[in-house]
Write a protein that binds this DNA or RNA. Structure first.
Lengths: 117, 117
DNA sequence: GCCCTACATGTCGCCGCTCGATATATAGAG
DNA sequence: CTCTATATATCGAGCGGCGACATGTAGGGC
């Protein structure tokens, strides 16, 4: 089991990384688009400031979880990212792990004390 | 609605604060005991380093969510904390809020690829 | 009596991360 | 030709956790 212990800082970072990977699950997108989509899909709950987003994208690319390429089509210069195989596996695996952690967390927080409901 | 947007840093901090408040839900405890209990209750998943725990306790006391008093009984000097009314309300309210956030998060992360028409 | 470990609390500096500010550049509207 | 939205990038400030350091006590083994 993934019983390695929990790192709060890494957890916050992971949430952002996973939101990016999830946004790329179905189609390739450039950074700005990812930010817009995450905000739309979450009804404004989750949002990326660009000072946060771009460094994350660079990090993910370095780790081989996404691959970016500059689109040279006549329009604006955009760096389009696609999910790699490793990225997709990471997304699935970490989603499961995060799901287990939050489920255990909520269990502790909601535990109604000595009186079992 | 609680549609104010999401702060990752505050979220990580809140998790630690809520774990402390939850540990105090049923009985008053001193800091060291809180650390041991959280670790035990979570099977080692969540743990507090004391360099993290004590500052949090001080912060919670300043905010009036817990009240601490030095136990003078013959034993070691311990600062015993009890949950205040405000602390209990905070625990319940924030637990609900965190629950909603993680539920929306997992929804986004687990969303099976939209089947493109 | 003495040492060593577990208990118990506290502070401080480093590091990693987010965020706002700043910079640069282009497309399209008016 | 200016103004705004698009689009990417970097840097400094600030926040928060973590490891290290500091301090002191209780109790068991010898």
């Amino acid at each position: 089991m993934g019983d390695r212990d929990f790192d709060v800082q890494g957890f916050a970072r992971d949430i952002h990384e996973l939101l990016v990977l999830a946004a790329l699950r179905d189609e390739a997108k450039h950074g700005y688009q990812i930010a817009l989509d995450v905000e739309t899909d979450s009804n404004g709950l989750f949002r990326f400031r660009h000072g946060t987003l771009y460094p994350i994208l660079h990090r993910l690319e370095e780790e081989g979880l996404v691959r970016g390429s500059w689109s040279k089509g006549g329009g604006r210069r955009k760096k389009v990212y696609v999910l790699t195989g490793a990225g997709r596996r990471h997304l699935n695996g970490e989603t499961t792990r995060v799901g287990e952690i939050v489920s255990r967390l909520m269990e502790l927080l909601r535990r109604p004390g000595e009186v079992p409901a």
